[in-house]
């Protein structure tokens, strides 16, 4: 069974042949992955021992090795191919929504509807955990919607600002 595992933007083709063996970059290795407790795993990879913590989050795997973190997306290689054939027509084009990454208090709104903004331009300041955090525009465009006012408390995931492609 072939998979594509994507780490930091790099695709790795990994074949899991039968229990205990994987092939990566044409090198076949003997693996022994044991679940220890909760998110804790022990991996022996050709007898090299790794202490690993792994969690599934939003369809991706967050892997901790040696105190460093890697986010891995795994797809069935065949399905990935199919998706490539299907194209990206279903992706939302042209706009970007800025949502509250955490609950907090809107301290200041830096833009108004109709404003043209650059990518990474500050849109508003959200205070959470006693720190002011500037939320920035993920893209260049025009502010179409501002849903909050200073002093307003927002919940995680609330739509704050919408930036769309500038017309013409």
């Amino acid at each position: 069974m072939k998979y594509i595992a994507t780490v930091d933007g790099t695709d790795h083709e990994i074949e899991v042949d039968r229990v205990g063996e994987v092939t990566l970059d044409e090198v076949t290795m003997v693996t022994d992955l044991r679940a220890i407790d909760g998110s804790s795993y022990s991996l022996l990879l050709d007898n090299r021992s790794y202490q690993v913590f792994a969690e599934r989050q939003a369809g991706r795997y967050v892997i901790m090795i040696d105190g460093d973190q890697f986010v891995v997306e795994v797809e069935d290689a065949r399905l990935k191919q199919l998706r490539a054939m299907g194209g990206t027509a279903h992706e939302e084009m042209g706009g970007a929504s800025v949502v509250a990454p955490m609950p907090g208090l809107v301290v200041k709104v830096l833009v108004s509807p109709g404003d043209e903004v650059e990518a990474n331009q500050g849109l508003l300041i959200l205070e959470a955990m006693k720190m002011e955090n500037e939320l920035r525009s993920p893209r260049a465009g025009v502010v179409r919607q501002v849903n909050v006012v200073p002093g307003q408390t927002v919940a995680q995931g609330d739509l704050l600002v919408r930036v769309e492609e500038a017309e013409g």
């Binding site: 595992a5 930091d8 990994i14 990566l24 693996t31 792994a54 892997i63 795994v74």
Partner: peptide, 11 residues
């Protein structure tokens, strides 16, 4: 990165 990819794939 490769080890992380292998662990995620096995899981």
């Amino acid at each position: 990165e490769r080890v992380a990819a292998i662990v995620a794939t096995l899981l």
